[in-house]
């Protein structure tokens, strides 16, 4: 029953909501930031990169789902990058042929799409475990989610950071020129993530708990409790035939009462073939990094605790 809480039913609409909004690759999962931060300071460049990432995701996930399920993991990773290389080479070639100015503005970030972390991660976490149909939905959803963020970032950064929308000059002098720099991209993404969180908590409140990173703060290692003799209470004189007034055992250690575990009943009946584990699907490496940082912090706390305890001991002595 406890595992059922973490399970979700994969319908196309749910996959789309997850991919576009709730688990947006850039704003929530924080993968594939490079084009959004560094390159998307113009709506045209953002459009080009969006098209490339959408095509790349669909191709990689379909191929992974259809062909790579029985291939070992280390070979799969190499194949993802080979596919990415093919797509990015084709995209670069066509962009230089038909839109050379935009290709020049995109610079190195267009060929760099070959090493797209988003494609590799979605293939490995989803496509190799699911059917071709679900993989296509997932690729489209994640591609659209990424594209929307890239287009929004490109539009706002172009308007405020450069003063133009594409070729149209809106402001003769850029109002906030810093937004066209990479740090402006990070600031834009930060505020966009806050906006998305507000949107989900307001309009998609059922999904709001799915948006978390799954950060668990490491528990502090408490020092073992000092053994102190428990105070012996004087027991009252027992009356004969009085069961209620019998003395209570006092030497037993006092244990905290465990809270009763309430399990939510699963109401909907679902097709077992579509059920999957949520944390398998949307697991990403950022969690591990954050866990490592948190454990580092907790170890730092424990060091400080130990030092203060040693000081106290020395003072007591």
């Amino acid at each position: 029953m406890a595992n059922d809480k973490n399970r979700v039913v994969l319908t196309p609409s749910r996959i789309f909501i997850y991919g576009v909004v709730v688990k947006n690759p850039i704003l929530v999962q924080v993968i594939g930031l490079c084009p959004a931060v560094a390159a998307c300071a113009d709506i045209y460049v953002a459009s080009l990169l969006s098209a490339v990432i959408l095509f790349l995701l669909i191709l990689c996930e379909l191929a992974a789902s259809a062909l790579l399920k029985n291939v070992s993991a280390w070979v799969r990773m190499a194949l993802y990058f080979v596919m990415g290389l093919i797509v990015s080479s084709l995209a670069t070639m066509f962009a230089e042929m038909y839109v050379p100015q935009i290709a020049n503005t995109a610079g190195v970030y267009l060929p760099l799409m070959a090493a797209s972390s988003a494609a590799a991660l979605r293939c490995e976490n989803f496509a190799v475990k699911k059917s071709i149909r679900l993989s296509f939905y997932d690729a489209a959803a994640n591609g659209i989610g990424t594209s929307l963020v890239l287009l929004f970032t490109g539009f706002v950064r172009g308007l405020l950071g450069v003063g133009t929308i594409g070729e149209f000059v809106v402001f003769e002098k850029a109002p906030i020129s810093g937004l066209s720099m990479p740090f402006g991209g990070f600031i834009m993404l930060g505020f966009s993530a806050a906006l998305l969180k507000w949107f989900i908590s307001t309009f998609l409140s059922d999904y709001s708990h799915d948006m978390s990173f799954g950060i668990k703060r490491a528990k502090k290692k408490r020092p073992p409790a000092r053994k102190t003799p428990a105070p012996i209470k004087k027991s009252k004189p027992v009356k004969k035939n009085d069961v209620a007034s019998q003395p209570v055992e006092v030497n037993e250690p006092v244990t905290e009462q465990e809270e009763p575990v309430t399990e939510e009943p699963v109401t909907e009946t679902v097709d077992q073939t579509l059920i999957t584990d949520e944390f398998d699907l949307f697991n990403f490496s950022v969690d591990d990094e954050i866990d490592a940082i948190m454990s580092g912090l907790s170890s730092f706390d424990s060091i400080l605790d130990e030092i203060s305890k040693e000081k106290e001991d020395s003072e007591n002595e």
């Binding site: 580092g296 730092f300 060091i303 400080l304 130990e306 030092i307 040693e310």
Partner: peptide, 12 residues
């Protein structure tokens, strides 16, 4: 600061 604290602890 974490490094400094660790070094101090080792010295202690």
């Amino acid at each position: 600061q974490i490094r400094i604290t660790k070094i101090k602890k080792k010295k202690q």
